[in-house]
Amino acid sequence: MEELKLQRIQTGIAAEYYVAGELLRLGYNVTFTFGNTKSIDLLIEKDDTIIAIQVKGIQRTKSICWNLDKTKVKPNIYYVLVNLHIDKPSEKPEFFILTSNEALNLFTSSPKLGDKRATLDYKKLKRLEVYQDKWSKLC
């Protein structure tokens, strides 16, 4: 059987919808920006507080890392990193929640990708055990 591989845009859209679904399940009101704001994918609201969310997705368990343009990281934006696990359909997607400062500190620059681009290794983030499913950061 041929291994499923999503196009980059499909990965991003799937990740955004999974995050939106999880936030709705947790009682947030969710609005998609649909690409109108490049550094914000979702606006969420709960208890009269509005929060900006940037979603980054990877496809599979063996994916290497998420990519980020560090010049677009702005204060007061939360980053939700998603592993969709399309290679393991019985597993649910994993969510890792980071503040903008945590994103700046954890994503490492790569000379191979240029000065602006940075990466964060999935296995490294998972081993830290402090970011997975930490939706309480959004309160």
Rank of each mutant, 00 (worst) to 15 (best):
N101W: 07
K134G: 01
L113Y: 09
E91Q: 10
Q59E: 15
K74D: 09
Y18K: 15
T33M: 06
I50T: 10
G114Q: 08
I58G: 04
P111I: 14
T33Q: 03
D48F: 06
G21C: 08
E102I: 04
W66S: 01
L43I: 15
I86F: 07
K137I: 03
I9P: 05
K56G: 06
F32I: 12
N36S: 13
T71Q: 07
Y122H: 15
T37Q: 10
I50G: 03
I97V: 15
S109V: 14
D115G: 12
A52P: 02
K62R: 13
Y17C: 09
I13V: 13
E3V: 00
C139R: 09
G12R: 12
L6D: 10
L104G: 02
K137N: 11
I58N: 03
L42F: 09
A118I: 05
I97R: 05
V80K: 03
I58A: 07
A20Q: 05
V55W: 00
I51T: 08
K38Q: 11
T49R: 06
V73T: 09
L68P: 01
A20Y: 02
E16V: 11
A118N: 02
K88S: 10
I51W: 02
T11W: 00
K72N: 08
L43G: 11
Q7L: 14
F95A: 10
N101D: 14
Y18N: 14
P89M: 07
L81G: 00
L4V: 12
E2F: 13
K124A: 08
V19A: 02
I97W: 08
T37K: 07
A103V: 08
D41G: 10
R127S: 15
K46R: 11
E129I: 07
T99D: 13
K70N: 11
S110V: 14
L23K: 04
A15I: 02
Y17F: 13
F107H: 05
N76G: 11
Y18C: 13
V30K: 03
G35Y: 00
L68D: 04
G35C: 04
I13T: 12
Y79T: 05
W135S: 06
M1H: 14
Q7Y: 12
D47P: 01
L24E: 15
E22L: 12
L81C: 05
R60K: 15
K137Q: 14
H85F: 05
M1I: 03
S90A: 09
Y18P: 01
L23M: 14
N67H: 11
V80Y: 02
A118G: 04
D48A: 12
K46I: 03
G35I: 04
K137W: 06
R25F: 08
V80L: 07
L120N: 04
S100Q: 07
E45T: 11
I40C: 12
E91Y: 04
I77C: 06
S90F: 02
Q132A: 12
G57W: 04
I50Y: 03
I58E: 04
K88G: 00
I13M: 00
S110D: 13
H85C: 07
A118V: 05
M1Y: 15
K126G: 06
P93H: 12
E3S: 09
L81F: 03
S109K: 13
